[in-house]
Design a protein around this nucleic acid. Structure first.
Lengths: 390, 390
DNA sequence: TCAAATAATTCAACCGCTAAACAAATTACG
DNA sequence: CGTAATTTGTTTAGCGGTTGAATTATTTGA
């Protein structure tokens, strides 16, 4: 249904199945078949047939009739099936591995995180470890009666469409075939998505916020700085899937040299290394930065201004109205956000009549793992035809 | 067919009509029904039925059978109908009005341009003048046997979806209801699109280039600097339709103040006013800049570097691989492009393994008018169902 | 207890696509 | 020449999917 392929009756069915499912997911209370007919524009006869398929496929469940006001046969409410297919999300980051299982309703049912510097192992070792973590979670989910239908892996780097990690500078990875390696492991039977950590964290943010967010830039502050762009509740991937390299947007052409080879990249002003420069090293560095109010007050607003300059450029080009500060920028938002907001309101052309919103992410750590699982669920909900009578 | 609406059999028909039409438009030689069946994946029977409708609707025409090698019944070639519905494109710019009529094949059949400073008239006067221009072109087209099916107006400013010109700073327009005003004039019976000049010029570039360009940023250097972004042969509009404000991307946070209120905007380094600053005034200013080699060599590379810095940020976020220099930047490309390329190759993360292309626009003046007409044609070809048996 | 109201299902009709048979128009070749 | 081979395009039966109206199901209210 991508405009490039022919359409036959089966595609109509597939489209309308997804349409009904989307309306169930978006409804504020369990809708009846009649409600769905009204909201989708399909007839009740058609909706009934579609719902039958979706219930049969384990994607929808009926809930007991809610008490109604007025006469009439009571409606059977429909909800996403909490025990239908579920998504497994995995995340590799510089200083931890994480995973979780999310059901169709978007609820995180199982989660795990393993701290430790992943730069000590080679890529194959890291991938084996994360696969083991995933296999454990999958077993937990199976014990609870849920079937993991697919997996997604978040990586802090550039990923090509086929699951090849082109570069992950902070892991020192280079052309690692993540999809191929995982296919040989205990998760090899699952369909696998591999994507950038910021993209998947943005998906997590989108789902966590319910229906509130429509379009935003999610800024992922980890060792590097990435961005996931969501437009009209859909992830924006750019022309080749390598969008969102916010960390290497230029803030000052004559600024300090970046390890990417350019000069004055945002990462040199607001990256974790720049924020912690000259601080006593150690795991608690970031916590200390928050504690040392004087330093925070001096350093973070400057970083926020640089972040704001870079984001203003992005917003002038993409025209989103919301910026979400995630990763380490989330907890630091009280110090960063005012400066970001100030730069945006000064530099974004449309802010004169349509003010920008800057807020901290609603997500905790391992946001990308949650988003990865969410991406799997998203795909199931977007293409339910594969799940009915299969 | 936007994913938000129900799909019925009629939608299938509409989709496949558009599919067939797109394949005819993209073919290098007039395809037969059998060719189309093979390339679209539909059966020959279906393609025949669809083609009958399209020929009946005046969108396709049969050409005599081409000589073939080998046995078999000769094929009837199909081409876009040169005398079917046509698009009327109009452009309002600071120093001229332009218009043209483009047929379904993308050929410009009639064109007109009127030079003169449009800031002397009020918006209503300018709109009346451009409507008159459009009406003349429409009459010319009618005399030649072509029916104008719709119009599009390009404006150098921010346009909202309903045809309201929110701001056009260089025309000093503010909340001008262009669509409403034109609806009351001689073109009032035509469906009307109003869009930003850079967006429509990008569409013109897309069509002018045949099948070569897939994703690019078209930089429109006029009095201000705008950008039209094309991704996968489709115009990218951002979240609210106000994307592409390249002129106000920050190049140096502490640079000179811009009239938008911010500081260090690209327009202060590469805008027409900045390029011509301190040059003797007059219409020939730009020509003189080209002539005065010394000045050009000194000033344009610096402007190119600023342009490159801003574009590098854009490309890092959007991941396009081609930049097209349009408007006044087109003829100045020999001086600008090297500096732009240098900055891009240094600053764009992906350029290390996937080099960027920078080139001058293939279009002459009034590119936006051609693109506007192209946008109308595009819409007809994308939704042919409205034109068959109507 | 029965009428009104609302939910959900059933069924005939219609529409569009497919597959296969068929008709049309040309070349290849004995 | 004339027939076979080949390719294009059309016809027809069948199928899947939606519609709309009628029907069945289940509740409230008088």
């Amino acid at each position: 249904m991508d405009g490039r392929s022919p359409v036959r009756q089966a595609s109509v069915r597939a489209h309308n199945l997804a349409l009904v499912l989307r309306h169930v997911a978006a409804a504020s209370r369990p809708p009846s078949r009649a409600d769905l007919a009204a909201s989708t524009g399909l007839t009740r006869a058609t909706v009934s047939a579609l719902v039958d398929d979706l219930v049969g496929g384990g994607l929808l469940a009926e809930v007991g009739p809610a008490p109604r006001a007025g006469a009439g046969r009571p409606a059977a409410g429909l909800v996403l099936h909490g025990y239908g297919p579920a998504g497994l999300g995995l995340e590799i980051n510089v200083d931890y591995l994480a995973g979780c299982v999310v059901d169709l309703t978007g609820t995180v049912q199982h989660r795990a995180i393993v701290h430790g510097d992943q730069r000590r192992l080679d890529p194959a070792g890291v991938l084996a470890a994360v696969a083991d973590l995933g296999a454990e979670l999958r077993a937990e989910a199976a014990a609870a009666g849920r079937t993991v239908a697919g997996a997604a892996l978040a990586v802090p780097g550039l990923v090509s469409g086929v699951g090849l990690v082109h570069r992950a500078p902070n892991l020192a990875w280079h052309d690692v075939d993540a999809a191929g390696t995982l296919a040989a492991g205990p998760l090899g039977d699952l369909p696998l998505i591999v994507d950038n950590e910021a993209n998947l964290a943005a998906i997590a943010e989108l789902h966590a916020d319910g229906q509130g967010l429509d379009s935003f830039v999610y800024v992922s502050g980890e060792i590097g700085i990435g961005a996931g762009i969501v437009l009209h509740r859909d992830l924006f991937r750019g022309a080749r899937g390598w969008s969102g390299e916010l960390g290497h947007v230029c803030v000052r052409p004559d600024g300090p040299r970046c390890r990417c080879g350019a000069s004055g990249c945002l990462e040199q002003y607001a990256g974790q290394e720049a924020l912690l420069r000259d601080l006593p090293p150690g795991e608690a560095g970031l916590a200390r930065l928050r504690a040392e109010a004087a330093l925070a007050e001096a350093r973070l607003p400057a970083a926020g201004r640089s972040l704001g300059v870079a984001l203003a450029g992005v917003v002038n080009m993409l025209d989103v109205d919301t910026v979400v500060l995630g990763g380490i920028f989330g907890p630091l938002a009280p110090w960063l956000a005012p400066a970001v907001e100030a730069e945006l309101s000064q530099r974004v052309l449309t802010s004169a009549w349509s003010p920008m919103t800057v807020r901290a992410s609603a997500l905790g750590p391992a946001a990308a793992a949650v988003g990865a699982a969410g991406a799997v669920v998203r795909d199931i909900l977007a293409e339910p035809a594969a799940w009915v009578r299969a």
